[in-house]
Design a protein around this nucleic acid. Structure first.
Lengths: 114, 114
DNA sequence: CACAACTAGATAGTGCCACTAACTAAGTAG
DNA sequence: CTACTTAGTTAGTGGCACTATCTAGTTGTG
């Protein structure tokens, strides 16, 4: 639970996967997702970043929402992963690992001079 | 040496580090850097992506260039890492590892329900 | 010779998306 | 009544990969 903040480009690449990963544990709403992300080091995710992202994930059919109105507090959009979302999470996690691998390869591999 | 292509957002986050990593092996010019990147799976890096990036890295004092005019072929901008560039490569590699760690943490950690 | 293909670098335009800031709206604490 | 928290939304900006197109020198082929 670090509180160091990630840089912007890294966030941009990782955030959709992070949100899907949070939702892989079960349904949740925007504000609670933000809370979990904050605990994991995404300290500066604001509504203006998260809600449009959730909208995009929904447009891609990776998540779905239903409205929940409790007896107290404002209404909530409860988000759940779709099957497609679960697949995308897996695909994205693999891509991420492959890129990590590639980056360290480039750095450690001796280059052939032509 | 995979020839599968990376997706755009991942490329965006990784490419500057990848270029710095290539240059950590010694000076090189744009076209040759592109060649090495292609060998490592960045199959669709075109001049229009790479040259502006090199320009930005230079603006940030992470790389420097000198012109080389061989007896044959067009002139080349030979790029070298600066000390600052070497530091940035290390910082960025660490950030990348930390993000990978974070992503797998989010996915595997049980969430506390309030 | 003419014409294509390759090497090397540069630029304009587009689209995506994190970020900032400001907003609505309902409940709670002082 | 005022301020804060929870919850979600919207408009505007800037950075950057991507596409397409350009210049310019070199090499290969008919």
């Amino acid at each position: 639970m670090s509180d160091i903040e990630f840089d912007q480009e890294l966030t941009r690449a990782a955030l959709p996967q992070a949100v899907l990963a949070v939702l892989s544990h079960g349904e949740s709403h925007g504000y609670a997702i933000a809370e979990v992300l904050r605990q994991h080091g995404f300290t500066r995710i604001k509504g203006g970043t998260l809600y449009p992202l959730l909208k995009r994930l929904e447009d891609q059919r990776l998540v779905e929402h239903t409205w929940h109105h409790d007896e107290s507090g404002p209404g909530r959009k409860q988000f759940t992963l779709t099957d497609q979302g679960r697949q995308e999470l897996e695909r994205s996690a693999t891509a991420w690992r492959r890129m990590s691998q590639t980056l360290s390869e480039i750095q450690t591999t001796r280059q052939e001079q032509p």
